[in-house]
Design a protein around this nucleic acid. Structure first.
Lengths: 344, 344
DNA sequence: GTGAAAGCGCTAACAA
DNA sequence: TTGTTAGCGCTTTCAC
């Protein structure tokens, strides 16, 4: 267990001054090649690594960004994280990840804790609870300290910072229209994300599409709940008491359970009922049948957010220059809908 | 944009010395109540937060741990992360997460980069490439510097540090036995994790069980590959040319694709073929039918690793006191196997 | 009860 | 070309 070596120790060992060592290690032109070589070799030999903390203290920059994620088990968020991680690494930034588990308190605590010089900026998705409580003071405080924040996925207009969001209303509109164009007459909506932006905006897009094309809106065909409790039973009941030939499922869980419900009733997909999912993840891809889905580019969302934040941190963009980036979606046709060759 | 305030500024504003402020904020008995009150109020008013960096530099402890994850999109790893995050937070530690994307280079680079005072210890799962290359010098180096590491899931005996692993061989043995007990005579194995510990150990357990109960080992029933390319076709072919009534799928992807293959051949699950999966994640839970699976307690793995590491960091355990913790598994019966009431 | 000074590991302006 | 010094924000010993 040979402790880490410091610049000071090198200086002592080599009988030179601390600053000489510092300069030599930074390959300064001020130092003679001979001395440089001597010092660098000694450093390498003893596996010298500069202390990041000391450097950060000095430059007032830590080269690390804080990521706030409501739930890492959600595939979408995991993909966003990956996108962030990718560009962060490319630009030499570390990320420090915090999972709030959808808790307001945890979110406030961690963000407070990190905004003390530990990080240069945040990429955050607020928790469900925060959204419900509509308490945004912690964001305001941090922003006021001059620490940049980029919000992704879930946002609110009261927070004046950069945002990266999905074009949910429009996507839901298109998904619904896709079902209509493939011949569905009675289109249901299933969601277990009640309370979140996704659910709300999806429902909006769904309604908009029906209205636009003069389809009646049947409230019995709209199932929106907060979690998956009894969802299967509810879907089966809906199927029992209504004519349904198309279902738009707003999240992966809804999609999976809808398949299970149809399977229980021995209804053929897509021959009798078509399903279109939203947020294209593992479940959609590996379900039987694989789900036609609206792909949200989570990875792009992460990349965009990270790029934006880093530009802010490095002052390539003015702090006051606020922007909301909208990430487009794309339909991935798989086997839960009838083949249809229109452009989406 | 009101910049962050420092102890020095408080001192100047209140015409006291820096050390007085420091002590007052730390509620030292040395300072008079009056001064304390004055300083603390001023600090609160101006939202003073101590600079974590400076503190860390001082105590040589950062209260943050580095997490190395090969792939965050793998549900298992996401769950481990969550477990780690939970106990880290409880004990007042931050985590800094790095995703290696199964790259040796990325793993070495990030670990080198972080072991410069940024973190107090590592919880790491080595990348596939590292495992293949068998290059472990970066682990040795870091360990030698006195930085503790806890390895999880994928490990190697050449690395002398704490480990937290799953009891894979035994679990696979039991899974296979479960299929036998439920009446299966011709049990296949499907894996797309070739090259990883899981795949290897699972196969071992599978073989062991067959041998133990005098089932013949038919190499044609063993499909092990590195990724999912052509997997479905291969399974279908196996089904075409062999009698199979039970399948042990080593990972979630294998499980999902096996279901798709059986569906394509209109084979009923579990009436004609039973499936048992390993590593119980989203796909298994939400597939149609839901998969009977061997649950690996990822969350527990994360918690155990974090608890162990923090104990090491806080020197409640001696650095040299090395231990390998084995996390048990548990069978979750769902609908892809015939009901069977034995204890597993 | 309060403050001056040293130091954590490093950089950078300035002196020699 | 090399060294001295101050300072990043904070804690802590030791004087006063």
């Amino acid at each position: 267990m040979s402790k880490r070596i410091t610049i000071k120790q090198i200086a002592q060992a080599l009988h030179v001054s601390i600053s000489t060592v510092s300069k030599a290690l930074n390959d300064s032109y001020e130092i003679s090649d001979e001395t440089k070589k001597k010092i660098q070799e000694y450093a390498k030999l003893h596996k010298y690594k500069p202390n990041t903390l000391a450097l950060s203290l000095q430059n007032k920059k830590t080269k690390t960004i804080g990521i706030i994620i409501p739930n890492i088990l959600t595939y979408y968020f995991a993909r966003v994280l990956r996108g962030i991680e990718k560009v962060a690494t490319e630009k030499g930034y570390n990320i420090i990840t915090c999972i709030t588990n959808e808790s307001y308190k945890k979110e406030v605590d961690t963000m407070q804790m990190l905004s003390n010089g530990t990080i240069d900026g945040f990429i955050a998705c607020m928790s469900e609870e925060t959204l419900k409580l509509q308490k945004f003071d912690h964001f305001h405080d941090i922003l006021e300290e001059g620490t940049p924040i980029v919000l992704y996925d879930r946002t609110h207009q009261d927070i004046n910072c950069d945002k990266v969001v999905t074009d949910t209303v429009k996507s839901a509109y298109k998904a619904t229209r896709f079902l209509m164009k493939s011949g569905c007459k009675n289109i249901a909506l299933v969601s277990v994300s009640e309370g979140l932006n996704v659910s709300e905006f999806s429902a909006k897009g769904y309604r908009k599409a029906l209205k636009k094309y003069d389809f009646p809106i049947n409230e019995n065909l709209i199932i929106r709940q907060h979690d998956e409790t009894n969802l299967k039973e509810r879907i089966i009941k809906m199927l029992d008491t209504n004519k349904v030939d198309g279902i738009f499922t707003v999240d992966e869980i809804s999609g999976a359970i809808t398949i299970q419900a149809l399977d229980a009733k021995n209804i053929k997909i897509p021959e009798e009922v078509s399903i279109i999912g939203f947020t294209n993840g593992m479940i959609s891809r590996y379900s039987t049948p694989p789900l036609t889905s609206v792909n949200r580019f989570a990875h792009t969302t992460g990349e965009t957010a990270a790029a934006r934040l880093i530009n802010k941190i490095e002052e390539k963009i003015d702090f006051e220059d606020i922007k909301t980036e909208i990430i487009k979606t794309k339909l991935v046709e798989r086997e839960s809908t009838k083949k249809l060759f229109i452009k989406f």
